[in-house]
Amino acid sequence: MKDIKPAILLFIIFTIICGGIYPAVVTGLANVLFPNQANGSFITDRRGKEIGSALIGQPFSAPKYFWPRPSATSDFGYNTMDSGGSNAGPTNPVYLQTVSDRVKALRDTGVSGKVPADLVQASASGLDPHITPESALLQVPRIATARGISEERLRKAINDGIEERQLGFMGAPRVNVLVLNLELDRLSQ
């Protein structure tokens, strides 16, 4: 059959172009134009050591830190080697018990009133670096007590850290928990 030759050769050519040249050119251009983003948007400390990616959330549970969104990654929350959500259905009794436990854990730290959903429902990626500004403000009294910093200073840190909607209307306003917690450690020094 005369179409066997073009099939084989075209497959090889497509593999070279789409699987070799294309990603290589994109890598080259990306590393020239946007080297920081192409390599993971890492945050470095004063000595230049990488301490995490600004895009990837980390687990925090100590009272002195802002707590991030619940993460359903396997083994432990914010396990970067297994991104993903809980995939719990909305009427699953085990899931509802989990959410109820999370609400209770927050109530135990003195939170009253309504709890914002993002603070008790797990994210899609399991690595969501953000919480809503309301969820951050809710945690101010606990952190102020744990660190002995005034609530005023904490609120200012949150306000300074709010990422507004992109271009003014895209997405949702949010704060980056890792960045905010690094700022807290700096304030406490």
Binding site: V103, G113, V120, Q121, S123, A124, A172, R174
Partner: peptide
């Protein structure tokens, strides 16, 4: 069933904050 526990807002299970509900 989650709102009954004193939680406010849209269904955030399985959603990331940055996209907003309409983006999701």
């Amino acid at each position: 069933l989650v709102a009954k526990m004193g939680v406010s807002g849209v269904n955030m299970e399985g959603k990331d904050v940055r996209f907003g509900l309409a983006g999701s």
